[in-house]
Simulated assay, not measured.
Amino acid sequence: MKLAILSRNSKLYSTRRLVEASRDQGHSVRVLDPLRCYMRIASDGFSMRYKGKPISGYQAVIPRIGASITRYGSAVLRQFELMGTLTPNSSDAVLRARDKLRCHQLLAAERIGLPTTVFGDNPDDTHDLLSMLGAPPHVIKLNEGTQGAGVMLTEKPSASQGVIEALRGLYANFLVQEFIEEARGADLRCFVVGGRVVAAMKRQAPKGDFRSNLHRGGTAKGVSASAAEEDVAIRAARVLGLGIAGVDLIRSKRGPLVLEVNASPGLEGIEEASGVDVAGEIVTYLAERVRRKAAKRAAAR
Score class of each variant (00 low, 15 high):
Arg168Lys: 11
Ala205Gln: 14
Arg111Tyr: 03
Gly169Cys: 02
Ser160Gln: 07
Val139Trp: 00
Gly169Arg: 01
Asp99Val: 00
Lys207Asp: 05
Glu144Val: 04
Gly218Leu: 09
Leu133Cys: 06
Arg111Cys: 05
Met152Glu: 14
Glu165Arg: 13
Ala135Val: 06
Arg184Asn: 15
Asn143Glu: 00
Phe191Val: 11
Glu155Arg: 03
Ala205Pro: 15
Ala186Met: 15
Thr126Trp: 11
Glu181Cys: 02
Glu182Trp: 03
Tyr171Trp: 15
Val192Thr: 06
Leu106Asp: 00
Thr154Val: 11
Lys100Phe: 00
Gln105Trp: 01
Tyr171Thr: 14
Val193His: 03
Asn173Val: 00
Ala227Thr: 10
Asp231Thr: 11
Leu101Arg: 08
Leu133Ser: 06
Ser226Arg: 12
Lys207Pro: 10
Gly120Ser: 11
Gln105Leu: 11
Ala228Gln: 11
Leu101Ile: 06
Arg184Cys: 15
Val232Pro: 05
Asp124Leu: 15
Leu107Val: 01
Thr117Met: 04
Val192Cys: 11
Gln105Lys: 04
Val197Trp: 04
Ile140Asn: 04
Glu178Thr: 04
Glu230Thr: 14
Val139Glu: 01
Phe174Leu: 05
Lys141Ala: 10
Phe179Pro: 12
Pro115Arg: 04
Leu107Tyr: 00
Asp121Pro: 10
Ala225Trp: 08
Arg111Lys: 06
Pro206Cys: 09
Gly185Lys: 08
Glu230Pro: 13
Phe179Asp: 08
Asp187Ile: 01
Ile140Lys: 01
Leu101Val: 07
Glu230Tyr: 10
Leu130Gln: 08
Val232Thr: 07
Arg98His: 07
Lys221Ala: 13
Phe174Met: 04
Val198Asp: 01
Arg216Ser: 09
Glu181Gly: 07
Val163Phe: 09
Glu178Ser: 13
His104Met: 06
Val176Trp: 04
His215Gly: 10
Val232Ser: 07
Asp128Arg: 03
Arg211Asn: 11
Phe210Asp: 13
Glu229Cys: 04
Gly113Ser: 10
Val223Gly: 02
Gly148Lys: 03
Lys221Val: 03
Glu229Met: 06
Ala227Tyr: 08
Ala97Glu: 04
Ala200Gln: 12
Arg111Glu: 10
Pro137Ile: 05
Lys221Arg: 14
Pro157Leu: 10
Arg216Ala: 14
Ala172Cys: 13
Thr154Trp: 02
Thr126Pro: 14
Phe174Lys: 03
Gln204Phe: 15
Val151Glu: 04
Ala228Thr: 08
Ala186Gly: 14
Thr116Trp: 12
Thr116Met: 07
Lys202Gly: 14
Val176Asn: 08
Leu130Asn: 09
Gly194Phe: 04
Gly194Val: 02
Leu107Glu: 01
His138Ser: 05
His127Pro: 13
Pro123Asn: 02
Arg98Leu: 04
Asp209Tyr: 09
Cys190Ala: 14
Arg102Gln: 01
Val198Ala: 02
Gln204Val: 15
Pro136Phe: 00
Thr219Leu: 13
Arg196Gln: 14
Leu188Gly: 02
Ala199Phe: 09
Val197His: 06
Tyr171Gly: 10
Lys202Gln: 15
Thr116Ile: 03
Val232Glu: 10
Val118Phe: 07
Val197Met: 09
Ala159Ile: 08
Leu142Gln: 06
Arg96Ala: 00
Ala199Val: 14
Ala225Asn: 13
Phe191Met: 12
Asn143Met: 00
Pro137Gln: 05
Glu182Asn: 08
Asn143Trp: 00
Asp231Glu: 15
Leu175His: 02
Ser224Thr: 03
Ser212Leu: 09
Val223Ala: 02
